[in-house]
Design a protein around this nucleic acid. Structure first.
Length: 365
DNA sequence: AAGCTGAGCAACCGCCACGGG
DNA sequence: CCCCGTGGCGGTTGCTCAGCT
């Protein structure tokens, strides 16, 4: 079996580190059109300089339509603890009991929060450690929300967006985490005057997913955009993909959708690419919606110029990169936002909301 | 204000299981 | 039956910043 096997890919030929929005877009676009029958071949066909494994991981953990991010509910935590008790570190098995949750996320949650909780004797979890972190995370679950990652990630992400392209494509050592895990800020945090001023704008999105009562805190518009995108599944997955992800899904679970949020679609004039509410995963008039959605994103990303080509490629064979390599901008010797901006017209400078969109829509789902 | 530390998590790595030839 | 390729899984790493001193 697997002894002495060659690496799955030539490490020198593939990009590593955090995924950029452009890459995400490419991957989504490709899978949405063609599925993922062969992960190994996928990167090439999709025009990605990534290892197939990396693509798979990215898809499974973040881009997949039914992935739920952030905010583990009390029930979920309990389930994890219970299942871990019986299954051990069988993360994928555990994940199969938690619709929308990935093994990786569960693993992280376990290692960072739940393990401590379980290890500690009942009641021995002393505030000092837990108050600031844990309680803002796990114990918050008592308010039925929970396991929210601190605001800082979001904050840092946003901070990174201010002046610098966070996705340093040229660098093998990622500088910042992508503004990806748009973990929400739990209500308590939001209401905390000390926290609030910071950068709620990007940090308060996802709480929504697991609990509306907590989620529907007033948020800045950008957050709602993220929320919308997150909830909206704008790139409705094709049936093939949905088959894969058609586990009992988030729509079946405890997710409440703050209806108000959907107004944003019209606010954004995106209403015609917005979700058509349904209980099925397949909630979009896929082809047209997808195109509109991608179109929108590409415009936002400053890929407008290539859009025609893209539209073409959308209808072309699978072997063609579906998106006319916008990454060329990112691959420039100097991955300078300004360069990108001048060339691509949008990436960095006005990218705040866009990046939030990206982060929220693609990473936080 | 600056430095240090720990937390959190995305992504990578390597091994294993399975299926096809 | 064996070999090989691929997908999947679990463990680990590396990066960044919030919070503390």
């Amino acid at each position: 079996m697997g002894k002495g096997r060659a690496p799955c890919c030539d490490k020198s030929q593939v990009k590593r580190g955090p995924w950029s929005p452009v890459e995400d877009l490419k991957l989504i676009n490709f899978i949405q059109k063609h599925g993922h029958e062969n992960w190994r071949a996928l990167p090439k066909q999709a025009g990605l300089q990534r290892c197939g494994k990396s693509c798979r991981l990215r898809w499974i953990n973040y881009l997949r339509p039914d992935v739920r991010r952030g905010n583990f509910t009390k029930e979920e935590e309990d389930t994890i603890i219970r299942l871990h008790g019986s299954l051990g570190n069988k993360w994928s098995k555990i994940a199969s009991h938690l619709p929308g949750r990935t093994d990786n996320e569960i693993k992280n949650v376990w290692n960072t929060h739940l393990k401590k909780r379980v290890d500690a004797p009942e009641g021995a979890i002393t505030p000092k450690v837990n108050e600031s972190k844990e309680s803002s995370l796990t114990s918050s679950s008592s308010s039925s929300s929970t396991l929210v990652s601190p605001t800082r990630k979001r904050n840092q992400a946003l901070a990174g967006l201010e002046g610098e392209q966070p996705w340093d494509e040229g660098s093998s050592t990622p500088k910042k985490p992508r503004p990806s895990e748009t973990k929400g800020v739990k209500a308590g945090e939001l209401s905390n005057p000390a926290d609030e001023p910071k950068e709620i704008s990007t940090s308060s999105v996802s709480s929504t997913i697991s609990n509306s009562s907590q989620a529907v805190v007033s948020k800045p518009v950008d957050d709602e955009i993220g929320l919308l995108l997150e909830l909206g599944e704008p790139f409705g997955a094709p049936p093939g993909i949905c088959d894969e992800v058609n586990k009992p899904n988030i729509l079946d679970s405890d997710m409440d959708i703050p209806i108000e949020s959907f107004d944003l679609w019209s606010m954004l004039e995106l209403d015609n690419i917005g979700p058509s509410q349904s209980n099925d995963v397949q909630v979009y008039d896929t082809e047209a919606e997808n195109k509109k959605w991608l179109h929108f994103l590409e415009n936002e990303l400053g890929l407008e110029s290539s859009e025609e080509v893209n539209q073409q490629s959308l209808t072309n064979s699978a072997v063609e990169p579906l998106i006319p390599d916008p990454e060329i901008y990112l691959m420039m010797p100097e991955t300078d936002p300004e360069i990108i901006d001048s060339a691509g017209n949008a990436m960095a400078s006005e990218s705040c909301s866009l990046d939030e969109i990206w982060s929220n829509s693609f990473s936080q789902r």
